[in-house]
Simulated assay, not measured.
Amino acid sequence: MTASVTLLQELIGFDTTSSRSNLALVERIADRLDHLGARVRLSHDDDRRKANVLASFGPQAPGGVVLSGHTDVVPVDEQNWSSDPFRLAERDGKLYGRGCADMKGFVAACLAAATGFAATDLARPIHIALSYDEEVGCLGVPRLIADLLEHEEKPGFAIVGEPTGMRLGDCHRGFLGFRTRFEGKAAHSSDPSAGASAIYPAADFVGFLKSIGHRAGVGIDRTTVNVGRIEGGSAINIVPSACEITWEFRPVTAQEADETERLVAAYLARTAPPDVRSSLHRHVHVPPLSPAADEPALGLAAALGGIGPPFAMPFGTEAGFFQAAGISTVVCGPGSIAQAHQPDEWIECSQLDAVDAFLARLTAWANRRQS
């Protein structure tokens, strides 16, 4: 069993579903990296239930590399698993468990490679940056990047290890998440006219979102809309006084993002019944990753074994945050996005071998004796 597989086994054992605290896992990782001699920093959320981990090896100098991953995973509720999702299982050259592909496989490989980072006389720093709440809107990444730029010299490169099959990902759409709330008046259902249902205008709003989600284009060249959650009402015999819709859209361009928000605001303004109040709150904004033919991070990742040519990813990542901070960024990691968020999530052992080799080449690249 390789070091990466052994560490993955340990990581999978921590239930870090986004609704739960990740502190037990974070403290275990921080302790391991501290013992290796890294400069370790934690940055907590406002409630101090979750934390980012930043561990830096080598000199405090500019031009280093960030290896970015996240510690949270999506829920396993209502999924039919063949084995315990929080206990690593191996079958036919595949490793099964929640987060194997997305993205504890990459995190485990980084922790395994850290032994080499610590033993090498690095000319360039290597930073392991692990964030909280990526799966619910990259909520921890801005705080992690701010902490990185405040306490370390600005890196030259960021490699985000989301599962691409070790292919080079150079662009993806942004992501905007909203809560739209309708508030009416409760009443006994025997006389609905005495109240004002919040669910009826909410249902109409869902239909409107569906109508604007069907736009021309294919793949990431199309703005998409998704309603993820509807919550409202309290009993079958009570006119519901409140209903909340949680929804998102992924625009192709900044212009389409602005147009979509204007469309929604205009719809709510003209259609809400006089006895029902509506409110619109944007709670997630993940920036896009924009392609550039001469992106330095692409060249570095290709030299380390990333597979070209670069491709456009249908899913979002934290990469846009690093790019917005002026750090050249590429997405390249083990496993397949097709396995992410699925029951019996798995990663091939050969993919962990590939990322182990990738990180060994990174160690050599940063080695002072080979600079």
Rank of each mutant, 00 (worst) to 15 (best):
L130N: 11
G333K: 04
R87P: 02
S197I: 14
R282P: 13
T17Y: 08
P309K: 14
D77Q: 12
G333P: 01
T71H: 03
A257E: 15
S83K: 03
E90L: 05
L300C: 12
S336E: 06
I327C: 04
S83R: 10
A24Q: 13
G64E: 13
L111P: 05
C349Y: 09
A194R: 05
A269S: 11
S241T: 02
R262A: 15
S193G: 11
Q79N: 04
L263A: 04
L280R: 09
G177M: 12
R28Y: 03
L88Q: 08
G305D: 03
T224A: 12
C100Y: 06
D294Q: 15
S197Q: 09
L42F: 02
V5P: 04
T224C: 10
Q79I: 00
R181M: 13
W365V: 08
A302F: 03
T17K: 00
R361C: 04
P287R: 07
H283K: 02
E256W: 00
P85V: 13
T317G: 10
L280G: 06
E150K: 15
R361P: 02
L122F: 09
S43V: 14
N237A: 00
V252E: 10
T17E: 11
I337D: 03
L300I: 11
A24R: 14
A303P: 10
D221Y: 07
P273I: 11
P273N: 10
E152K: 02
P75H: 02
Q9D: 06
S350M: 04
D46S: 14
F57H: 05
W247L: 01
L359N: 10
G93T: 12
L148S: 02
